[in-house]
Nucleic acid binder design. Sequence first.
DNA 1: TTATATATAGGCACATATGCCTATTTTTAA
DNA 2: TTAAAAATAGGCATATGTGCCTATATATAA
Lengths: 73, 73
Amino acid sequence: MDKSSEKEFLVKFGQNLRRLRKQKGYTQEELANELDIEISQISRIERGVINTSVSLVKSIVDCLQVKANELFD
Amino acid sequence: MDKSSEKEFLVKFGQNLRRLRKQKGYTQEELANELDIEISQISRIERGVINTSVSLVKSIVDCLQVKANELFD
DNA sequence: TTATATATAGGCACATATGCCTATTTTTAA
DNA sequence: TTAAAAATAGGCATATGTGCCTATATATAA
C-alpha cells in the first residue's frame, strides 16, 4: 500500500468512525472517556491524521457495538 | 481496556491471522512480500507481540480477501 | 448576536512499531 | 534421520502513536 492510498484509507476510516460515533449519540469527549484515551486522539483518528492500533479498534467496536467491517469498508 | 485484556486480544488477533493466512496457502514470507513488509513483522503480529496499525490490517484483509471481522472476533 | 459545547491544532516527552539485519530454532518433506 | 523450508528471536536506528497540555476555531443553542 503506497503512501497516498494509505492516507485515503485513513481518511475513510476516520469518516466511518465519526459517522458511527454520531449514530450512537456520542461526542468525541464521551467516547474518549469511555475508551480512557485523550479526546485529541479521537480527533486525530477521525480526521485521518494518525494510523491507530488494532487494540484501540477493538475497544471502539466493543464500545460502539458495531462490526469492525463497518470501519474498514 | 487494561493491559492484560489487550494482550489477550493481540494473541487472539494473531491466531486469527495465522489461521486465515494458512487457509489461503501463504507462508509468512509470501504474505510479507505481498504486503511489502518484513517477515519479522508478520511473525510478531501472529504471536501477539505487537499492536499493529489499521492500515496494515486493511492491506491484510485485501490481500487475503477476508472480512476484518474474521480478525477481530 | 452571545454564550456554550464541540472539535481542531500543535508542541513536547515518552512509548511502541517498523525496517533492516543476523542468528537460531522449529517444522516439514525427502 | 538428514536437508530444506518456515518461523522465531533479538538488537539497533528511526518513524510514528499517545498522553498531557494549552490555545484556537467551529458549530449549536439560547
